[in-house]
């Protein structure tokens, strides 16, 4: 059926693949040469899959240690404040008691926030909840996102503005996109100086709708831009700010699941623009 030479070559190809060192022998118009290319393609795809699985495994390991680390601090604090409170109750100092209770509440909030973020992340990753984009107006999205960031913005006297949101429609899932865009606006507020402005603007393209969040904050260095979307990534420069480094990771995953993408343009010292692109059709 086959010539011996072809069989020998096939055998050699398998052998090389088993040893992980397959290389195409020639590039010509013969069938065997085409087959070699296909074989190579298959091998690199499965090799990539394997690499990704390995990476994923490592990720999970890292994730577990991160989670235990992140939850430990508030837990320890709660325990400590509770013990202090116990002692303080016996001495009966109302002012001191109130302070300790407040501290416990604050730490509990932090823990709660962390656990909520982790739950969202795992639900998204395991596809337990699906992102279901539909064609709809963007105004409710903007309104909810701005509303959600308002209290923090007011503390720092930052104004968040958006014009003409009622004119546009896009293909998105309200519940999840609220989370994605909300995280971006929260960041804008968090890393902006007091009294500055955060501007949301919308621009329409033939296929995409661009919702841009612009701040006048500290900015991000170019080399850092790809990293900020990584899980638990925190820039050296902002370690003193509260946060766990999940917000942008979630944002990108959510936008991706709707066939959109995020573009970041930033000048350190001047500010950052986050452009979130949504599809305008299904």
């Amino acid at each position: 059926m086959f010539g011996n030479r072809v069989l020998d070559r096939l055998d050699q190809m398998l052998e090389e693949a088993l040893n992980g060192e397959f290389k195409e022998s020639s590039y010509d118009e013969s069938k065997i040469s085409r087959l070699e290319t296909k074989w190579k393609q298959y091998l690199s795809t499965s090799c990539l899959l394997k690499e990704n699985l390995e990476k994923e495994k490592k990720n999970i390991k890292g994730l577990v240690s991160d989670i235990s680390h992140q939850t430990k601090t508030p837990m320890t604090n709660i325990r400590m404040y509770a013990q202090l409170l116990e002692e303080s109750l016996e001495n009966g100092e109302p002012e001191q008691n109130r302070r300790l209770v407040q501290e416990i509440v604050r730490q509990t909030d932090r823990l709660d926030f962390l656990i909520q973020s982790l739950t969202k992340m795992s639900r998204l990753e395991t596809n337990v909840v699906e992102v279901k984009p539909v064609m709809q107006e963007v105004e409710p999205l903007i309104a909810e996102v701005v509303g959600g960031a308002q209290s923090k913005a007011r503390e720092k006297e930052i104004t968040i503005s958006c014009e003409n949101a009622e004119l546009y429609k896009a293909y998105y899932d309200l519940k999840w996109t609220k989370e994605a865009l909300g995280n971006i606006v929260d960041n804008a507020v968090k890393y902006s100086p007091s009294g500055s402005k955060v501007t949301i603007s919308i621009r329409e393209y033939e296929l995409y709708l661009d919702i841009c969040v612009q701040d006048h904050g500290i900015g991000i260095r170019e080399e850092e831009i790809p990293k900020i979307f990584g899980r638990f990534y925190r820039s050296e420069e902002v370690h003193q700010e509260e946060g766990v480094g999940i917000g942008l990771y979630l944002a990108r995953e959510i936008v991706r699941k709707q066939d959109g993408y995020i573009k970041v343009v930033s000048t350190p010292g001047e500010g950052t623009e986050f452009h979130v692109f949504f599809r305008k059709n299904a």
């Binding site: 393209y205 033939e206 296929l207 993408y261």
Partner: peptide, 13 residues
Amino acid sequence: SRTSQDVLGLLKI
């Protein structure tokens, strides 16, 4: 520039 953004977006996706 408008069409460019679309084409690049598709390339990225």
